[in-house]
Simulated scan of single mutants.
Amino acid sequence: MEVLSREKIFITGIEGFTGRYLEKYFLEQDFLVYGTCLHESEKENIFTCDILNENAIFDLLNEVNPDYIIHLAAISFVAEKNQKKIYDVNIFGTLNLLNAIEKSGCNPRKILIASSAAVYGNVEGVLEESMCPNPVNHYGNSKLVMENMVKQFYNRLNIIIVRPFNYTGTGQKNHFLIPKIVSHYKDKKEKIELGNIDVYREFNSVFFVIKCYNELLFSEIKSEVFNVCTGKEKNIRTILNTMNDIANYSIEVEVNPKFVRKNEIKMLKGSPDKLFQSIGDFTDEFSLEGTLRDMYEC
């Protein structure tokens, strides 16, 4: 591998939804970007590496010697049926990465690790970092255990943990809510089956998340946990109305009882206060309508 003087960023899970956006963003900023994925990639900067193999990560880190690391690789689908896989990848995969960093010759200036707002569980209202987490599924619980393990490295590595709330954009898989809705409009479907359309959640832009990660990565902040959120909630009915305007037709909504969760929280959003106090508030640069329109027109 050619050794260059430009700063290097290493992204695990680089070919996932968020990873692809981060790769493009940092390449445009003239960084050298490397990453891992589970399958063979045609790109020379992306390596096949299973994060459950600590030795493989160790060898790769020694080869790349990154200045910054962003850890995204995880089982991120809440409905994943393989429970053991969720815990293995999300907890032990992260521990393998951190152990390999310490054993290797690399000395990254900052490590950003993606957790999830799912650690809070189903709690009504505005969720702050100071709240006691109470996850209600294996995905959220695996992320909380992962966070607790990561904090043991705080005194030895410069780490930030982020808890992103719902976000979306072009390229996200259709089993997520917003891509599912948009795909129905793109295909001119007459009907769509959904759950409760009167719940309020955050639906942020992937570009907002990328900017937050960038600002946190290059800040002086370390050993902290941050919500990555806007604090701006929308209900699904509003999203449907916006899509009706964008697509210029109205879709018929059928409420499928299978999609309606028991004791569903009506309003859930994050508090961005800590985030905005640290990196500023740039939420006005992003709009839900703009995100939906981009997804529809791509």
Rank of each mutant, 00 (worst) to 15 (best):
T94Y: 04
L127P: 04
A79S: 09
K143D: 03
V89G: 01
N82W: 00
I161F: 05
P108A: 10
N148P: 00
Y154V: 10
G121W: 02
G125N: 10
A73V: 08
A100E: 05
I75K: 12
G140R: 05
L157F: 08
P66M: 11
A118E: 15
L61R: 06
I86F: 01
A73W: 00
L157P: 01
A118R: 08
P135R: 05
K143T: 06
N155D: 15
N148K: 13
D67S: 14
I113K: 03
F92L: 13
V89P: 01
V150A: 07
P135V: 07
S115R: 01
A73L: 08
R109A: 09
T94M: 04
S142C: 06
L98F: 10
I91N: 06
E80S: 14
N96F: 06
V64M: 09
E124T: 02
L144C: 07
L72K: 02
I91Q: 06
N158W: 01
S116N: 07
S115E: 02
V119A: 06
L127V: 00
R109Y: 12
L98C: 07
Y87E: 08
K85W: 01
L98P: 06
V126C: 13
L98T: 05
K85F: 02
N62I: 06
N141R: 06
I91L: 09
H138I: 05
N96L: 11
Q152A: 11
V119L: 07
N65D: 10
R156N: 14
H71S: 01
